[in-house]
Amino acid sequence: MINTRILTQEFDYFAPESIKQVVELLERHGEGARVIAGGTDLINQMKEEKMSPSCLVNIMNVKGLRYIKEDEGLRIGAATKLRDVRAYCFKSRYVALYEAISSLGKPQVWNMGTIGGNLCNASPAADTAPPLLVFKARVKLVGKDGERELLLEDFFTGVNSTVLQPTELMVEIHLDPPGDGAGNAFLKVARVGADISKVSCAVFLKRQGRTCTECRVALGAVAPVPMRVKVVEEMIEGREIEESLVAKASEIVSEEVKPIDDIRSSAEYRRQVAAVTFRDVFWKAWDRAIGGKN
């Protein structure tokens, strides 16, 4: 049986101060090396013995990984703490991200955990993923072969797996500027407070009067990776919004998701509630989009 009172694994530890040093350390220590940010996922996984790195590289002292700035949208350093992102997004044009982090874990986790950690851990239920997906976030990765940028959509490859190479780290998350007439929202369904999602959903949309000119929908915990539902987006974009259309769209959401049975819920339940959650979130975003205000 595992022992959650202590960490049984033995490993080397480094706390470098520059991105370059991080990459060097990762390269030097090879496969067994692992980045640690807040550690809220990683230490748990090590306690569960699902992971036993031989070397941890702490990135919390690295300069230039913790920032939030407006520059053609929003740019967030990967090691920025969830608390800081949450505070920034409160009453901002990125309120869905505020809502997602508010529902993610609890204050202690916001103080410890980072946004990059939430993404790199690649849980299907990662709560920042749906809002970031609908904000068309791009992530910037740096490795021994330099820098690359890709859409968050293309970042996740499966449960706890991403395109990250062993020697790569995420340095920045870049969100599209929402523009005028935009609204967004996030909701999650869980068993109790401070719990992992059974279903989560984020919607970003733009409206002109009764017409939805742009729409993006993403869900969490209903497939191996946080997923966009593009058929639904296409169905809604350019259309006048009526109850019946949203109801129809929610049925499609139900069909598109690929949930499983697990300890937290059943596939059947998730399918139904994905539709409900989508509908609730859609209307919330729609109402917020009036006059382009949130």
Partner: peptide, 11 residues
């Protein structure tokens, strides 16, 4: 507030 059960002393 931090969770000391998930915090490395070195960190």
């Amino acid at each position: 507030s931090f969770l000391s059960c998930l915090t490395l002393a070195v960190a």
